[in-house]
Each structure stands twice: as C-alpha cells, then as structure tokens.
Simulated assay, not measured.
Amino acid sequence: MALFSETADVSVRPAVVGDESAVTAVQVASWRSTGVLGEGVIDALDVPAMQERWSSAITSPPGPGFAVLVALDGPDVVGFAAVSPGQVLSLEVLPESQRAGHGSRLLAAAVDRLRSDGSDTVTTWALADDAARAAFLEASGLGEDGRSRTLATGVREVIEHRWSAGI
C-alpha cells in the first residue's frame, strides 16, 4: 500500500460541471432517509428539473456569494452544501456516509466561504421533525433563533425552523 495517493481520501471542493447528478442523488437520498417529508413528497419530486437547477447553480450562480460545494470520499461525491450571502441554503450527506465527518467539513467550508464574502453570521433552515439535523446543528454551535416557516409542498405542509450563529 502506498503511503500517499494522488487525491485526498476525504475533501471538500467547489462543485463543477458534471456534479449536478450526484448532488441531486444526494439530496433525494438524504430527504428520503429522514422520513420527515413523507414518501408522497419524495415521489412527487421532479428529479430531472432538480438536476437542471443544480446545473444552473453550479455553472451560473445567481449572484455574488452563491456557491455549491461538494464533499468527496475519494473520487465520489457523498455530500454537498449550497451557500448564499450569510446563509447555508442546503447541506446534505448520503445516509450511508453520515457520521464520517463530511457534514462537519461541508459546514466548515461553507462558513469559511461566508466569512470570505464578509458575513459575520450564518443561518440555515432545518425541518422541524429532523432530530438528527437539529443535533448536528446544535453540536456545530448553531441555535434555533425563534423563526419558522411553512413550506407548501403540494402534498403536505412542512415546517422548518431557522438556526443561526455568529461567525
């Protein structure tokens, strides 16, 4: 066995063209595994449209401060984070790759990106019934800030709570 390899075993990098399929697969698998959204919502997803939106986000971010980052395990995309000014829009890791540090690496990279863009706080939203996500965010130093929102999924109502922290 070689002491060094040409690529890192685990890492985070900016998403590139071609990552949109893996990002979509991570998102769908992650959402399905929580059980919070329900199979009706998951089954109603338009996966090709999701891939197109991720492709656009990767190749043509809507403005300064927007970025998509991916977590790699060797050459494989196992998670992603999407950031906008002051906010982590999404952070997901494949269920089978969770609890291996990928989420923490993604969050750290996202916060580094937010700081470099001048943010002094980070906010994100989490599904109200996602206890694992809440535990991750709390362990990472974020806290619920009292704000919530209701998402209209077309299938059922979904509530999210906002989490924030100074950075």
Rank of each mutant, 00 (worst) to 15 (best):
A109H: 07
I58D: 09
E39P: 02
P95K: 00
P85K: 13
Q27K: 02
G63A: 13
T59I: 15
D76G: 09
A100E: 03
S55A: 15
A82Q: 14
P48H: 08
S90I: 01
G101V: 03
A109C: 09
I58G: 07
R99D: 10
G103N: 07
V78L: 12
S97I: 00
R105W: 01
L89A: 13
S84T: 13
V26W: 01
A57D: 13
D76K: 13
G101L: 05
M50I: 02
S33P: 02
L89C: 11
P64F: 03
L89Q: 14
A82T: 07
S55P: 08
V26A: 03
P75A: 14
S30M: 09
A57I: 11
A71G: 14
A71R: 08
P61T: 02
A108I: 04
L72S: 14
S90L: 09
S55K: 14
L69K: 06
S55M: 13
L69F: 06
V93C: 06
S55R: 15
W54G: 04
V83A: 14
L91N: 12
W31L: 15
S33A: 15
L106M: 11
S30F: 04
D43Y: 00
I58N: 08
D43H: 05
S90Y: 01
Q98K: 00
E52L: 08
G74L: 11
E52K: 05
P85H: 11
A57F: 12
V77T: 14
L89V: 14
A109M: 09
E92V: 01
G38R: 09
G63W: 07
A81Y: 02
S30A: 15
E52G: 04
S30Q: 08
E52Q: 11
S97D: 05
Q98P: 00
G74P: 04
P61S: 05
G38F: 05
H102Q: 13
V28S: 01
S84W: 10
P95F: 00
E92K: 11
V77A: 12
P62L: 13
G65Q: 07
A29I: 08
P85M: 15
